[in-house]
Design a protein around this nucleic acid. Sequence first.
RNA 1: GCCUACGUAGCUCAGUCGGUAGAGCACUUCCUUGGUAAGGAAGAGGUCACCGGUUCAAGUCCGGUCGUAGGCUCCA
Length: 638
Amino acid sequence: MSDILITFPDQSSRSFATGVSSMEIAESIGPGLAKAAVAARIDGLLTDLTQSIDKNADFEIITEDSDAGHEVLLHSTAHLMAHAVKLLFPDAKVTIGPAIENRFYYDFDIPGTFSDNDLEKIEAKMHELSENDFEVNRIEMSRNDALKMFKEMGEDYKVEIIEQINEHDTISAYSQDDFIDLCRGPHVKSTGKIKHFKLLSTSGAYWRGDENNTMLQRIYGTVFSTKKGLDTYLHYLEEAKKRDHRKLGKELDLFFFHHLSPASPFFTDKGAVVYNNLIDYMRSLYNEHGYNEVITPQIFDMELWKQSGHYDMFIDNMFRMEMGDREFGLKPMNCPGHTLIYSHGHHSYRDLPIRMADFGRLHRFEKAGVLSGLTRVRSMAQDDAHIFCTPEQIGDEITDLFEMVQKVYKTFSFEDLSITLSTRPIKALGDIKLWDKAESSLKAVLDKSSFYFTIDKGKGAFYGPKIDFHVKDALQRSHQLATIQLDFVLPERFKLKYIAEDGNEARPVMIHRAILGSLERFFGVYLEHCGGDFPLWLAPVQIVVLPISEKVQTYAEKLTKNLKASGFRTQLDDKADKIGAKIRKAELSKINIMLIVGEKEAEAETVSVRRRHKGDLGVMDVSELTGLLSEEIKQRSS
RNA sequence: GCCUACGUAGCUCAGUCGGUAGAGCACUUCCUUGGUAAGGAAGAGGUCACCGGUUCAAGUCCGGUCGUAGGCUCCA
């Protein structure tokens, strides 16, 4: 038997006997590696460790702590769960069970549903199967044999899957004890490898995601190679729950919902302070960047939405009303209204670009099942603007937007910006030449920006290509916030024009752009990002004055009054509580500055300053303090 | 829209087998006048989401409506 040459990721190579398995190679390198190995990558393809190799190949061991290895482990755990479910619920039919980010799921067709109690039983059975340490074996077979086998087993969904697999492809299945499941693999070599897992939740899910198909029962779970890994992940889930904007919104009394206006947030006085400060901040940027704000109607004759195309594309998401013999639509977007402003006057190329900003309230009838807190609402406003410009101006406008976006994310301390450029979809309106030009100008700006970006081919809007910005929050979750979309269609539909340099009429381009996106959603995302600890400039209550006893009531009142007059959002806590209780209350409501005043301070006209989460900062003159705070607010420090 | 779970005081939650509703925090009043994360006492607060049904009797059982939550094409 001749030898084969195995090349490792560091480009070193060694020869092995033909037919060597990945496991044997791993063992030859070291027992530690062999223990951590879950799969191998041979010439770029993920395979089982037991797979034998009979030709020269690029080779890499996949360990359980790598991303690919974790995926294998997740997928193998999905199988283990399916195994347990089949034992406990013999009538269940298996469907698919992929790994997703940090989790896996498996969909089953069962007569009833899974209860929490069932989940516990399944988990216990999984532990039992893990302890049995069954070998996991790959079985390859022809398409016909596979069809026959799964038909006999009554696994209709698997049969459907096999029927869609290319005739000439080999089909693989994996067995552990007497459980067998159609699967591409690879898998861990025995069930004993799967130890640290937890089933998380159940839900309904349509077969192949199509609501016309059978509703299946899905179970989500997670698994890690170490107990520590699992604990860390479960802790992360706890942390995410603690920071949930709906929970914080209630605790800090920022907003609430009422069943008489579903999915439409009520911002309390406190929440409105934050909301309005977000708007004020964007306004200050608009001043710097040459935007003009407009105010447009809430309700338009349906004729407008027919002309804009919303009637065809968006009518299911619109609130409509009939008044006498006219039908009106509540605006879901500002753009059509803005074209009416643009058309209200004549424009020369010298007027362009026109940057038209609008914080108008929008209403969208989102399906009941997709609503969620502030992230998916039916009533919202955006930091919306439309830029009307010449095709030549697109590049400069985008460059300016980039600058703005970066400023904004810095202010809110969002790091880890990533960008996608979405290009022309198959169903696109407008001249292809214009598309090419628009795409290349977007790409040129991106190239110049030194930002890393990926291209989402064919994912642009039907009216133009777009750039989306994604940020990661404090828990490393990604959120799409800003969007910049080029639009050639609306200017066409509304026959927008300007007089070009050559004296002829020309069609402007519209750029739709929002940086925070919807203010409601941004409020939610940012609330979770900062965990309710608003920076001073955004805080609903910036200062609370805490008198130690009634003896200093007069001083405390005067102090509060003066701070309010100086523009600080200040409260006085003159309840008959002890100072410790007042401090505790202020800390829990996350008020930035606590001013403790007793007889000493009253006499010297000073304050004892305590900062949220930081504790006692010592005694200060009032003017010194207000100077520092004013500067902090002006800088919008985070 | 579909599946599942949930809806009890402002908030967080108990409420057994169907027998007419309870705690903590918050709130109000009183006592205490205090020095950096909870001083004490008393009081007030609920059409148990809504509508209907079963029953002598419903927060509890059944049906419906509304609302909220987790999901619903990350493919064997």
